[in-house]
Simulated assay, not measured.
Amino acid sequence: MIVDAHAHFLPGSYPHDAPECFPRLEPIADSSALLLVFGQMRFPATQVFFEAEKRIEAQEASGVAAEVISPMPPLLRYDLPAADGLALAQHVNDVAAELSAHDPERIIALGMVPMQDPDAAAGELQAIKDRGLAGVEIASNILGRSIGDETFLPFFQEVERLGLAVFVHAMPAPIDRLPMSAMGTYVVGIEGMYSAASLILGGTAAACPDLRVSFSHAAGGFAMSLPRANYFWGGSWNEEPRDPERAVMPDDGPSPLEYARRFYYDSMVFDRRAIRYLVDLLGADRLLVGSDFPAMLREDPIARTLRSMDLPDDQWQDIAHRNAYRWLGR
């Protein structure tokens, strides 16, 4: 049994009276796909983005038992006016609920909130739960501000109180030091690392011990930075006992690695050697299967690289499906 914990959807239409800043869908000549037009973005989206029946067919073809679907990341437009952002989120969440209602066991949906207005975002969480959605997707930064900023702590506390899951998707910051050609590659690694580190350094992980968060693409370069962070915290190599004489940071609680082992990470890192490192450092109980489908093609069959690694059965079962349900609180 395999749960794909990183897949996306799009609404197939938008209200006729929607603000001009809303996305729109345009027909593509000689194609059943539709062109998503949203600001500067132009993205051809196939029917599987919109239709529950097509999703189930794709699951069957790939060997997927269930998908956790979240809004296509470009919908996370925090530069919209707050009221428009809330209206867009509510429409997307209605669509998410409709898709999930087709087969709640196989299509597990996450919603979205207008993080540009943290109070409105927190206020929308109850409605997300009432719709039957499993949680919420947010971007790795909000207009360049880290998600671990204290401004967003009440939002995460409300997520924790309601028992919802959070999926953090890496997104470029408004001002980036790399060219546009790096947006889908290196920026994902940098932004994933920033977002995960900020939850630790900003105090959110300490304040919300029961928060269930997953990061896209294993939070990018986060895992490679953790041994150094742990050294500065504990003054020792190889996670050996803390050496107060060598430690740079005060001992104010769990180590960076201990905090990191509270999070979940999808294992879509494109190389079994990287997955092996994640298993060794963070634990097989922290990893999920992810594909970015249908924005990207799944491995054929799903999780082909993970299957090739000869993992012990208990580790494989954790990564294949059990961790996803733990993250979702199911």
Rank of each mutant, 00 (worst) to 15 (best):
L201P: 00
S214G: 10
R261D: 11
A52T: 05
Y325W: 10
A260Y: 00
A303N: 07
F293W: 14
Q47H: 11
G203F: 01
L133G: 02
P27I: 12
A121V: 03
R286N: 11
V64N: 03
I275A: 06
I142N: 07
S198L: 07
R24H: 15
A82M: 00
K129E: 09
Q317Y: 11
D252A: 09
F215M: 04
F49I: 05
M193E: 09
M171P: 00
R42G: 08
F152G: 03
A18R: 14
P19R: 07
G63R: 08
G144I: 05
Y277T: 12
A219P: 00
R161Y: 02
L34W: 03
W327R: 01
T151L: 13
K54N: 14
A89P: 04
D280G: 12
V64Q: 08
P256T: 05
P81E: 10
P15Y: 12
S255D: 07
L35N: 07
N323I: 06
R228C: 07
I175L: 12
D243Y: 02
R246S: 03
H6Q: 13
Q126E: 15
L162F: 08
A324Q: 03
D30S: 15
N93G: 01
P11V: 09
E240G: 06
P209T: 04
I147Y: 00
M1K: 11
V37H: 09
D252Q: 09
Y325K: 04
V48Y: 06
R131K: 15
R42D: 05
M1G: 12
A33M: 13
L99H: 07
V168E: 02
A96Y: 02
N238I: 03
S62E: 15
L25F: 13
P81Q: 07
Y231W: 15
Y186C: 07
R330L: 13
I108D: 00
R322Q: 13
H169N: 09
V213C: 06
A45F: 04
L201K: 04
L34K: 14
L281M: 14
W233T: 01
D84R: 01
E258I: 02
R228S: 11
A207H: 07
M180G: 13
I69P: 00
Q90V: 06
A7R: 04
A101F: 07
S308I: 01
T204R: 00
G12I: 11
R298E: 09
I147K: 06
G144E: 12
S140L: 05
V289W: 12
F155Q: 05
H217E: 11
A165Y: 02
I107H: 06
P11Q: 11
R326K: 11
F9I: 07
I147W: 01
F232L: 15
N93Q: 04
P227T: 09
Y265G: 05
K129M: 05
Q315R: 12
L34F: 03
A66N: 03
C208I: 01
I190N: 03
A127N: 15
M180V: 06
G123I: 02
A229R: 01
I175K: 13
D318N: 14
F293C: 10
V136D: 02
R326A: 11
G234E: 04
V92N: 00
R106M: 10
S267E: 07
E239W: 10
L311N: 13
A207I: 03
A295K: 08
A127S: 15
S100R: 05
R330C: 06
E105P: 09
R286S: 13
D252V: 06
N238H: 13
E57R: 12
